[in-house]
Amino acid sequence: MNRKLFVSGMLVLLLVLSTGCGQKPQISPSNGVTQDETGANGDHNSSNGGQANDADQPKDNTAKEGNADQPDTENKDAVKDQNTAKIETYFTDDQMLELQKVEQEITYKSEDDKYLAALKALQSTSDQKLFPLWGKAIFNSAKIQSGEVTVDLSLPDEARLGAGGETLALDAVKQTLFQFSEVQSIRLLVDGQEIDTLMGHVELEQPLTRN
């Protein structure tokens, strides 16, 4: 009886031992983190690694900085091509009794532009006490050839003056253009046509010459 109990106990012990040996122990990672945690951390590190790589890559600010710092070459070229000159321009008082000289600065590119700019300077003044005789006229062009400046202009009805104003207006043009030593004569055209009188009061002898 005791022998049977002993044999039975040994069989039970062997069965327990064999069952324990059949289960393989899990090997923990060297860093002591479980496999699930390693996977989770691996994903997290992968995500962070992507962000780190993006952060490590230099940002391409060339386009932005280029746009911000790029000089306005067109404007600079335009300014570079401009010439400036101080000239004498002529206006009259509100009674239209005599001409008053005013120094102004003009800008221009070519010689033809210089004469046109000088004529357009006759159209306005910052002095409220002076009257621009050519304020309502339209200067279309002014070109020089062989010392003669041909001026083409338009005269709306509101630009026409009385006899006294017409005389002063002609004197203003002559004194403004004849200050340039290369100008020897002036020919006036209205809408491209040569005229005998500018505003109907003063007869013109074309071309106008230096006195």
Rank of each mutant, 00 (worst) to 15 (best):
I195P: 01
F178Y: 07
Q128R: 12
K129L: 12
D191V: 10
E166C: 05
L161Y: 07
V151I: 15
F180H: 05
D152T: 11
G147M: 08
K129D: 14
I186A: 00
T125S: 12
L119I: 05
L189Y: 08
D191W: 10
D157Q: 11
V190L: 13
L161G: 01
S181Q: 14
E182N: 11
G135E: 09
S185C: 09
S181D: 14
F180I: 12
N140D: 12
L133M: 09
Q184S: 13
D127Q: 14
I144V: 14
V190C: 07
S154A: 15
I186W: 00
A142N: 03
G164H: 07
F178Q: 01
A159I: 06
L177S: 00
L198H: 01
S154D: 14
L133K: 05
Q193G: 02
L188V: 12
V173H: 01
D196R: 08
L177G: 00
F178S: 00
S185F: 05
L177C: 04
Q184P: 03
T176C: 08
L122P: 01
L198S: 03
E182W: 02
E158C: 04
Q123G: 04
G165D: 06
T125H: 07
L133W: 10
Q123N: 10
K136D: 11
A172V: 09
G192H: 13
V149C: 09
P156E: 05
W134P: 00
K143C: 00
Q179M: 09
Q145M: 08
G135F: 02
S124P: 06
F139C: 03
G165V: 03
L119W: 01
F139R: 04
L130M: 11
A169V: 08
A142H: 03
Q145N: 15
L122F: 11
L168G: 02
I144G: 00
K143F: 04
T125Y: 07
L153A: 09
L170M: 08
G192E: 13
L177R: 00
K143G: 00
E166G: 05
F139V: 04
G192V: 14
F139E: 01
G162H: 09
